[in-house]
Structures are given as C-alpha cells and as structure tokens.
C-alpha cells in the first residue's frame, strides 16, 4: 500500500520509469493472497450462517411429508404454504405474535426515551466519570441474564410485574440500553456541536436547539437504533420465558412448545423461519446504514 503510494508520487514526466512497475508488482502479489484469504474467510462465515437459514427456509415452505423425508433434498421439489399455515393456526401463536410486537414496541420506546438522552450526554458533555460510565454500560452486558433471571423473577412477582408484557418490555429495555446508548452517542457525535450553538444564537434555548436541529439530523440513526432494539426484543427468548407464564412472546412460546410438548417438526421449522425473518429483513435494509453509523452519519 505504502510502496504503491510512494511510486505514485514519483514524477509522472519520466513515464518509462521501471521502478514504478517493480515497486507495484510485489505488493500486488501479497495483496492478492491477502485478498483471497479474506474472501475465503468471508465465504466460510457466510456459509456458517446461511446454510442453516436456508435449510430452515426450504423446510418451512415444503409440504409436511417433505419435512420428514430423509435425506433431505437440498432443492425443494414442491413449494407449499401448508407448513407455515400449520404454525400460524397452532394454538397461542397469534396471541403470542401480538405480545411480541407489543413488547418490541414498548422496549423500543423505553430504550429510546432512556438511551437517547444518555447517548446525547455522552456525546456532548465532558463530565466526571464519563469514561467509567461508558465502561459500566458495557459491563452490564457481561452479566449473564441466566444469573439475574431468578432474582429478577422474584422481584417481578413482588412488584406485580410477573407475567406481564410491561415486565418483559422492561427486561428487554435493560438489555438493549447499552447498545442504544453507545449507538445514539455515536450518532450525536456526528451532529456538529456548532449547529446547536448556531441555533442557540438564533433564538433557541438548549432544548429547542436540540429539537429543531440535533434531533432531525439524528433521526435516521435513531430509527435504526430503535429497530435494532425491536429486533433484539423480538429474538429474545430467555428472559421472556423466565418472566412469563401465560403471556408468552413468540420465541418463548415456540421454545416452550418444543421443550414441554415436543412440538412436531413442521411447527419447529415454520416457527424458526417466522422468527428469523424480521432480523433478516432488518439487516438487509439497514446493513449500509449500520456500517456507516460508526463512521459518519451526518455530514
């Protein structure tokens, strides 16, 4: 890389200059190998994730007999909605779906209400313990929910939060907050402080400057952070299982069905596919944005 840029800097007047080619060749070979290895790694990782997703997807859209067939056909012979419909009409699925959506929306709202101001503070203010605070946010992720779940369940029972959607939403908010805070802070860092100051000199107080200038500029990023929370909540199984009994979210319901009742294969495949679909759609549309988020969101 550096050899090449150096070669580029040599005067162009001397066009037949040999060192240019000689210098460019060697790193190119090394670069090709590096690139090949990089691609090999990327393909391996992609396959690791994509193959199971593919298998689940074709099973979810195969007729029920095909699901039990062994060995499995890698390319589905016939497509059918039977399996998905079987899942859709299974007892509890539709109400669990409603629960999941409600919990997701609640978690999204709470995590933005709490996380966005925290992220804003991290981005704008130098306060005592700012770095420790950042560390602390990350360390909350180090506590396994498994350890916290029993005390949490006990407290929830005492607070009458057990087996409520609110309770699950609160748990999911807590889990999403570290990401929300760090992501929103990086979004607000991308919004120049001078813009808000300019608004203040033009008649805004601090809050108005935030609402009229920083917020609109941060909105796309905040939306991405919000959807991230929703997807996290949608996928979260453990806390949802521990903290609910009858008001199950969809993943908790599917897990319970499999563990307790030993749900049939079509139910598993269709349920699995139904659960991963939103994440896939989200990542597909947001991937560019999520990558950009850590660089510069607003120019």
């Amino acid at each position: 890389m550096s050899a090449q840029t150096n070669a580029m800097r040599t005067p162009l007047a001397n066009a037949e200059e040999m060192p240019f080619n000689a210098a460019a060749n060697k790193p190119t070979l090394a670069k090709t190998i590096t690139r090949l290895l990089l691609y090999a790694a990327a393909i391996t990782i992609s396959l690791f994730f994509l193959v199971p997703i593919y298998l689940i997807a074709i099973s979810a859209f195969s007729p029920q007999q095909a699901i039990f067939a062994y060995p499995k056909a890698l390319i589905p012979q016939t497509l059918s909605a039977d399996t998905m419909l079987f899942f859709w009409n299974a007892r509890g699925v539709q109400s669990a779906l409603v629960n999941s959506v409600l919990v997701g929306i609640l978690a999204l709202i709470f995590s933005l209400l709490v996380g966005a101001p925290a992220g804003y503070a991290l981005a704008r203010f130098l306060f005592r313990g700012r770095d420790s605070y950042k560390m602390l946010i990350l360390t909350t992720r180090a506590f396994p929910i498994v350890i916290l779940s029993i005390p949490l369940a006990v407290n929830y029972i005492q607070w009458n939060l057990y087996d409520t959607l609110w309770g699950v939403a609160f748990a999911h908010t807590a889990m999403a907050l570290p990401t929300t805070i760090l992501v929103t802070s990086s979004i607000f860092i991308g919004v120049s402080r001078e813009l808000e100051e300019a608004a203040q000199t033009l008649g805004c107080n601090r809050a108005q400057a935030f609402i009229k200038v920083a917020l609109p500029l941060a909105l796309p990023g905040l939306a991405a952070a919000a959807i991230f929370t929703f997807v996290l909540s949608w996928n979260e199984t453990f806390a949802a299982t521990i903290l609910t009994q009858r008001n199950r979210t969809l993943p908790a319901l599917v897990l319970a069905q499999i563990a307790d009742v030993g749900a049939p294969l079509p139910f598993r495949y269709a349920g699995g596919f139904f659960l991963i679909a939103p994440s896939l759609i989200y990542i597909f549309f947001m991937r560019k944005y999520l990558l950009g988020m850590w660089g510069q969101v607003v120019k």
């Binding site: 813009l195 608004a199 000199t201 033009l202 500029l217 120019k299």
Partner: peptide, 20 residues
C-alpha cells in the same frame, strides 16, 4: 444571559449551516 437574549448573531468557522 443566554445567547438568544443578547442581541447577537454569530458566524461560525464551520459556518454551521443547518444541513436539513
């Protein structure tokens, strides 16, 4: 007094023109 009640206007080095 806060900036808004000082009767001032300011031009910033980065211009701080609102992109939106």
């Amino acid at each position: 007094a806060p900036p808004r009640s000082r009767g001032i206007a300011m031009v910033f080095q980065s211009y701080a023109v609102f992109p939106h």
